[in-house]
Amino acid sequence: MTTMNTQTRHKTLAAWLAVLGGPLGWHRLYLHGWTDALGWAHAIPTALGLWGVQRVLDYGQDDKLSWVLLPLLGLALVVAALSAIVMGLQPAERWNARHNPTLPPDHPAGHTGWLTVLAMVLALMVGATALMASLAFSFQRYFEYQVEQGRLLSQ
């Protein structure tokens, strides 16, 4: 049985795990093991954001708690996408020095191939969409709330 320190960690797999399961911390659990607290912490804002989505479906867009919860999902998606991009852009020597210290610096596990680039492109698309949607939703709700408060003051 191998320990976590002797397993080869591939950059392409880590990038795809960040794209597909990053909001749940899959990439961190792959890179740092099952005891990584930050890997497990990724699931908290994701779950809260999904709860916000459920509240919008149940109570409509006027639910004020969902105004706070929904951007957390967007934030979780943006952080995961940014992680995939940063991992994909790391040089092989740096990747192997950090995640595969027992391997030579030019080991293929740290190389950037087309699948890695494809993961970064998808991460950029998902991350940018999530960021813009979160900002648009947050600002829309904030300004609607301000207008509502202004109307109450003017009466």
Results as ranks from 00 to 15, higher is better:
residue 63 D to E: 01
residue 153 L to E: 03
residue 88 G to V: 10
residue 143 F to V: 15
residue 29 L to G: 01
residue 123 A to V: 07
residue 86 V to T: 08
residue 51 W to I: 11
residue 32 H to Q: 10
residue 38 L to M: 11
residue 142 Y to T: 06
residue 148 E to Q: 14
residue 82 L to N: 11
residue 11 K to W: 13
residue 15 A to G: 10
residue 35 T to F: 07
residue 152 L to E: 09
residue 145 Y to K: 14
residue 144 E to H: 02
residue 85 I to E: 02
residue 11 K to V: 08
residue 106 D to T: 07
residue 55 R to V: 04
residue 23 P to S: 02
residue 40 W to E: 01
residue 118 L to T: 04
residue 30 Y to E: 06
residue 69 L to Q: 05
residue 146 Q to N: 14
residue 142 Y to V: 09
residue 155 Q to H: 11
residue 119 A to I: 14
residue 115 L to P: 01
residue 112 T to G: 10
residue 26 W to L: 00
residue 115 L to E: 09
residue 139 F to H: 02
residue 11 K to G: 04
residue 93 E to V: 11
residue 85 I to N: 11
residue 21 G to D: 05
residue 140 Q to L: 12
residue 48 L to R: 11
residue 8 T to F: 13
residue 98 R to A: 04
residue 155 Q to T: 04
residue 84 A to M: 15
residue 73 L to R: 01
residue 148 E to C: 13
residue 10 H to W: 07
residue 106 D to H: 09
residue 129 T to G: 14
residue 38 L to A: 13
residue 150 G to Q: 15
residue 24 L to Q: 09
residue 123 A to Q: 04
residue 131 L to T: 03
residue 95 W to E: 00
residue 7 Q to I: 04
residue 94 R to E: 13
residue 123 A to H: 12
residue 24 L to P: 04
residue 21 G to W: 03
residue 48 L to I: 10
residue 34 W to F: 10
residue 54 Q to P: 00
residue 22 G to T: 05
residue 113 G to A: 02
residue 130 A to Q: 03
residue 44 I to Y: 06
residue 128 A to D: 05
residue 5 N to W: 07
residue 38 L to Y: 15
residue 135 L to G: 03
residue 9 R to E: 00
residue 32 H to M: 10
residue 25 G to R: 05
residue 72 L to I: 02
residue 122 L to M: 11
residue 138 S to I: 05
residue 36 D to C: 15
residue 128 A to P: 09
residue 145 Y to C: 14
residue 78 V to G: 08
residue 62 D to P: 12
residue 111 H to A: 10
residue 42 H to I: 02
residue 145 Y to R: 14
residue 15 A to C: 03
residue 149 Q to R: 13
residue 2 T to I: 08
residue 137 F to Q: 04
residue 135 L to R: 12
residue 141 R to W: 07
residue 72 L to Y: 00
residue 49 G to E: 07
residue 52 G to V: 05
residue 3 T to F: 13
residue 83 S to N: 14
residue 36 D to G: 06
residue 74 G to V: 12
residue 11 K to E: 07
residue 111 H to P: 00
residue 117 V to N: 08
residue 1 M to G: 08
residue 14 A to L: 04
residue 1 M to E: 07
residue 6 T to Q: 06
residue 78 V to Y: 14
residue 25 G to S: 05
residue 117 V to A: 08
residue 155 Q to D: 12
residue 20 L to W: 10
residue 120 M to R: 05
residue 57 L to P: 01
residue 86 V to L: 14
residue 65 L to N: 06
residue 112 T to A: 11
residue 95 W to Y: 03
residue 29 L to C: 05
residue 70 L to K: 03
residue 40 W to R: 09
residue 46 T to L: 10
residue 132 M to F: 05
residue 94 R to S: 07
residue 67 W to E: 01
residue 99 H to M: 10
residue 46 T to Q: 01
residue 91 P to L: 05
residue 63 D to A: 00
residue 50 L to I: 08
residue 125 M to R: 02
residue 51 W to K: 04
residue 108 P to A: 08
residue 40 W to C: 02
residue 31 L to D: 00
residue 90 Q to A: 06
residue 92 A to S: 09
residue 135 L to Q: 06
residue 79 V to K: 10
residue 53 V to L: 08
residue 47 A to P: 03
residue 151 R to L: 13
